[in-house]
Design a binder for these strands. Structure first.
Lengths: 364, 364
DNA sequence: GGGATTTGTTTAATGGTTGAATTATTTGAC
DNA sequence: GTCAAATAATTCAACCATTAAACAAATCCC
């Protein structure tokens, strides 16, 4: 129970827009001020919260001591493997990006161990930079453009040429990552999380569409990433748009990817926008999604695509009259996935601070 | 915390296939036998659990006293308004249907107050029958074929001709329902819940498709009904199948309903099956759904539709190789929605027994 | 019948929350 | 300038629910 309430207090501070005090937390959570005081003391002692200068009060009364997430608390290492680049970033507990390393290199000629070794060479300076800041890493998360099981096995990443790559099993060969708990997830899923956390004021329910060579999507429902029964939801690229359309690599015909993939979009942007609108209308009708965020290569093309998408979307979205559907461009650009990966790590700390308090030897 | 653990114990008993004892609950939940004993005593005293005859043991040791949900505990009143019938049922805490009343009558000529009055005339004998059994009703839930807000306002029910009908506000005029807490929800949503709870061993994630005059769907994700950001998910009938197809009443072209609605299906079953397969493949790709349950008028036609649906579904479902998609016929037939409605009521009791224990004057 | 075995209850102890009283710090009125 | 009012945070005793361990109950096996 203490674990639960610690998480409640920490999340309340993390999610609040304005600076909270102990009394403010008590009001927001329903706990007593006494309880909140005790919990906050633990969180401060554990290095997860810090106390700020008392804010100048408006009315009478003792001024409230502001509380905030500790910038020197546990940080997350966000990693990304993509077709033409590798990336790593360090995000502290407050969500601020402290360090960022990207190397551009085509990964397709490399086999998975070589790619992971190269990833290690990007992760190593990131870890060194974190250590130099006195930041302890709570873990790492890795974004990969493919279908990933809950165990971290990449079942298939077509554009990387990966098939059944057991990433966790290969970690001991990567010194820079061997000693960190690692989560592996789909690139679009993590990018959606990145947009949720770092992309300003997002609705708690939205669809993130990532237009790369293929088209992926991450679905955030009620503030949580929906991964599907087996972990590979979001394959929006193979939604059928024209059942009798051109053959797709997946074996079917008329998939969205044939119209709105990077090459097809370059050839015919208007057709790409219309196809996207048709596919998105289906998603909106099925899931009652109010916000669609366009990322990847769609983000820079947003202004050109928007009208074409909206024409079909509004015509075909059933509840459009009752509640509008909003199109938005992604705000994080190519960093979304690694930001989301790092957010997974610090999100885990925020969701279960008791684990961190219990395990933290706090060497740094 | 006690509230949480009471729910944990009750749910454990409810969800367990075989008869549990106090010690069995302790093993399943991780609580101590002593704690479970105390909680079980409260639940028995509150009339939510009963103690059964000790089961004959296999090995040595004191025989375990079996525990089960109390058949005379709080019951749920499930209600349904549909185009050509009204229905009410009483489901006890164990999930057994104790009483069932259906009247067939076309509701389209009636205005909403008249329909609600007629519903009251179906609900009254159901309540009388429940009272005769000594059952106290914990509440009621109503299934309506339309879009319903969380407040119970029916925004639009096209086939009933309803528009912005505030059902809770009209309840005081219906004596048989005036004194019960009432939840209103979409028919397909509740039917999906009915199939989840009462339809045998269902996967925790599936799509329920209800083919009536229109086509609705209820989405159960991880054992919970997903209602969408604003409460009206599941409008699968207006997924685009052929973008340039025939005009639909919704203003778009080529909606699934134009091919697989009741009339279109009668005219061309093969085409209906193919269209369903295309639409369902999209859902499967997007949400990684492993099971699709066909209900409403699709259930009796299941054997005839199956092959045609599967052809398109398997061709277009991307992860079909990795994890198969299973088609199933609904098992509850036309009762699914009202069963699901009643399940909502008893599900609320099971999820928060402390509230019932606290509020129960237990008059009957 | 005695020992083994498992269930269920009792007892004291523990951990964490609550509520009331107390202290701390400011504003505003006289 | 002092005092009252207001608000924030802490302290402390009481309480509640869980736990652990001992104990009682009920059966099987030898």
């Amino acid at each position: 129970m203490r674990a639960h309430n610690l998480a409640l207090v920490l999340q309340t501070v993390a999610n609040s827009a304005d600076r909270l005090s102990r009394a403010g937390i008590a009001g927001a959570t329903g706990l007593t001020r006494a309880t909140v005081s005790a919990l906050v003391d633990d969180l401060i002692a554990g290095g997860l919260l810090i106390e700020l200068e008392p804010a100048p009060r408006v009315g009478a009364g003792r001024p409230a001591a502001g509380l905030a997430l500790a910038p020197d608390g546990p940080a997350g290492l966000g990693l990304e493997i993509n077709v033409d680049y590798l990336a790593a970033c360090v995000v502290d507990l407050t969500g601020a990006v402290r360090h960022r390393f990207v190397t551009h290199a085509d990964q397709r000629p490399l086999d998975p161990p070589a790619t992971l070794a190269a990833l290690g060479r990007v992760a190593a300076p990131a870890r060194a930079a974190a250590a130099a800041d006195g930041l302890a890493l709570a873990g790492a998360a890795l974004a990969v453009p493919g279908l990933v099981t809950v165990d971290g096995v990449v079942r298939v990443a077509p554009n990387l040429g990966w098939l059944d790559v057991d990433v966790p099993a290969m970690l001991p060969a990567v010194p820079a990552l061997a000693d960190l708990p690692l989560v592996v997830d789909n690139e679009a899923n993590l990018a959606a999380l990145g947009e949720l956390r770092a992309g300003g004021d997002r609705e708690p329910t939205f669809l993130y569409v990532s237009g790369e060579i293929g088209i992926g999507a991450g679905l955030v429902l009620d503030g949580e990433l929906y991964r599907g029964g087996r972990g590979w939801s979001g394959e929006i690229g193979h939604l059928t748009v024209y059942p009798d359309g051109p053959a797709c690599g997946c074996g079917a015909n008329g998939c969205l990817e044939q119209y709105a993939g990077q090459e097809a979009m370059a050839a015919n942007p208007d057709r790409a926008a219309a196809a996207l609108g048709i596919a998105l209308a289906g998603v909106v009708n099925l899931l009652d999604i109010g916000v669609v965020v366009l990322g990847g290569s769609y983000a820079p093309a947003f202004d050109r695509l928007r009208a074409g998408i909206e024409t079909e979307l509004h015509r075909r979205a059933l509840t459009g009259h009752l509640a509008p559907v909003t199109l938005q461009a992604a705000t994080l650009g190519p960093d979304a996935a690694m930001r989301g990966a790092a957010d997974v790590v610090i999100g885990a700390v925020r969701a279960d601070p008791a684990r961190w308090l219990g395990s933290a030897t706090r060497s740094g």
